[in-house]
Structure formats: structure tokens, C-alpha cells
Amino acid sequence: MRLLSKILWFLAFLAATFVWMVLFEHGFSMDGFSQGVREEWRALTTLVGASPAPEAKK
């Protein structure tokens, strides 16, 4: 149970770090944040080696 708690805290730390980095790099507006999340997630998945998600049609 203690290991599960540590894993969840670590995942929460990674998520919070991702959110803060997107906010500081792409701005504190909702448009900048949502576009920044898409860009950074695509870059992160490319870096890790997974294929990026297909772009949504606008």
C-alpha cells in the first residue's frame, strides 16, 4: 500500500510539472494552454518513441 501511495504521488508530481511547464511556455490563457498541451504532448510522445496521436480536423 505504501508503494502505491509513492507511485501516485510521483504521477501527481509529473502531471503538475507538465501543467506548469505548459503554462509558463505557452501562456496563462485557455487557448494558449490547450494548444500548448497538444504541442507538448505530441513532442513528448515523439521523444518517448510512441507514435503521436492523429491531428483532429478543425
Rank of each mutant, 00 (worst) to 15 (best):
R2Y: 03
R2P: 05
L3N: 13
L4N: 04
L4T: 13
S5N: 05
S5K: 11
S5F: 04
K6Q: 10
I7H: 10
L8A: 12
L8H: 12
W9T: 07
W9Q: 13
F10A: 04
L11G: 05
F13I: 08
F13D: 07
L14N: 10
A15L: 15
A15K: 15
A16F: 06
T17R: 14
F18D: 03
V19L: 07
W20Q: 13
W20H: 10
M21H: 15
M21E: 15
M21P: 04
F24S: 14
F24G: 05
H26T: 05
G27N: 03
F28W: 07
S29Y: 00
S29K: 03
M30D: 05
G32V: 05
S34Q: 04
S34Y: 11
S34F: 07
G36R: 05
R38F: 11
R38Y: 15
R38D: 12
E39H: 06
E40Q: 09
L44R: 09
T45W: 12
V48N: 02
G49P: 07
G49Y: 11
A50C: 02
P52L: 06
P52Y: 09
P52F: 10
A53R: 05
A53P: 02
A53W: 12
P54S: 11
E55F: 09
A56P: 08
K58Q: 07
K58N: 13
